[in-house]
């Protein structure tokens, strides 16, 4: 459908685009604006910061709170989950696409059925498991329970199935082992979908809230989302500083989204349209 059918409609569409962009990004702009105000300006009800911009809130957020430590913890957690999930899911998707074995259909059904189990229905027992393993306040406690994803397997299987089967036969004629075929053909040829899953997993893991809240009882591996929670609870009146910390929390995933949005869109659309 084309909305633009002439000069007037072009201008109207432009106006609509700009208004919509302002509305959707307003909370972000507001956060950035408040993070650059002095406390006095903020208390006086300012909407925009005054020149010169006041970056002391960022200094305070990093100085008075272990914000950098939280950010690093979150980065480590997100990278572990992203890399490990790509490995486990691509192995599983490979088995579901290229290895014919008895019970494969049943196992795939079981795998898809996990999409029906809400993660929240498992947290009580998972918390007990992690506690009994002495994994509270460790990276393994944060990451291991989320190292498999039915959605990821499904997405990669979609991509692997588009590879021509002759490729597999040819590699077998060459005497290549199954594992070599997997590593040197399937994985490189499926890079776009792997990138989709990587972007999606990184953002999701970085933004996790309930699980890190449960398994980090002290600062050792606490993630930045939980750090933000305690910060806004403690510094109840220092909104500009809290906003500075919030902007830092949002920055990482925003950069990943801007860089990876092409992959993300292709993958999510494939999941929705073909799935």
């Amino acid at each position: 459908m084309r909305l633009v059918q002439g000069r007037l409609s072009r201008i109207l569409v432009w106006i609509a685009l700009i208004v919509a962009a302002f509305m959707t990004s307003f909370p972000l702009l507001y956060a950035i604006s408040a993070s650059l105000m002095s406390q006095a300006d903020f208390n006086a009800g300012a909407v925009l910061p005054t020149w010169p911009l006041d970056f002391s809130n960022y200094v305070d957020a990093f100085g008075k709170f272990p914000l950098l430590h939280y950010l690093l913890n979150t980065l480590i957690m997100s990278l572990i989950v992203m890399v490990a999930l790509l490995i486990t899911c691509s192995m599983a998707a490979f088995a579901f696409t290229f290895i014919r074995f008895r019970g494969r259909g049943v196992l795939f059904g079981v795998m898809l059925s996990t999409l029906m189990i809400p993660w929240e229905a498992t947290i009580i027992v998972n918390f007990q498991t992690v506690r009994d393993l002495n994994w509270l306040n460790t990276f393994q406690g944060l990451t291991v329970p989320s190292l498999a994803s039915a959605f990821g397997i499904f997405l990669l299987r979609q991509a692997f199935r588009t590879l021509p089967h002759e490729l597999f036969e040819a590699s077998q004629i060459d005497g290549a082992s199954r594992f070599r075929f997997f590593v040197s053909m399937v994985v490189p040829l499926s890079r776009p979908m792997l990138a989709t899953l990587a972007v999606y997993t990184f953002i999701n893991t970085w933004n996790k809230y309930l699980w890190p809240l449960l398994v980090t009882t002290d600062d050792r591996v606490r993630t930045v989302q939980i750090g933000l929670r305690s910060m806004q609870g403690e510094a109840t009146t220092q909104w500009p500083m809290v906003m500075a910390a919030t902007v830092m929390v949002m920055a990482a995933t925003t950069i990943v989204l801007v860089l990876g949005q092409r992959q993300l869109k292709a993958g999510l659309a494939a999941g929705a349209v073909k799935g």
């Binding site: 953002i203 809230y209 929670r229 809290v242 801007v258 949005q261 993300l264």
Partner: peptide, 21 residues
């Protein structure tokens, strides 16, 4: 890109900003 941005924002960060709003 602008319309897709909220996708990257965590529940915690979004809620803190809206709490101020």
């Amino acid at each position: 890109t602008v319309y897709a941005l909220p996708l990257a924002i965590s529940a915690a960060a979004a809620a803190v900003v809206w709490r101020l709003i």
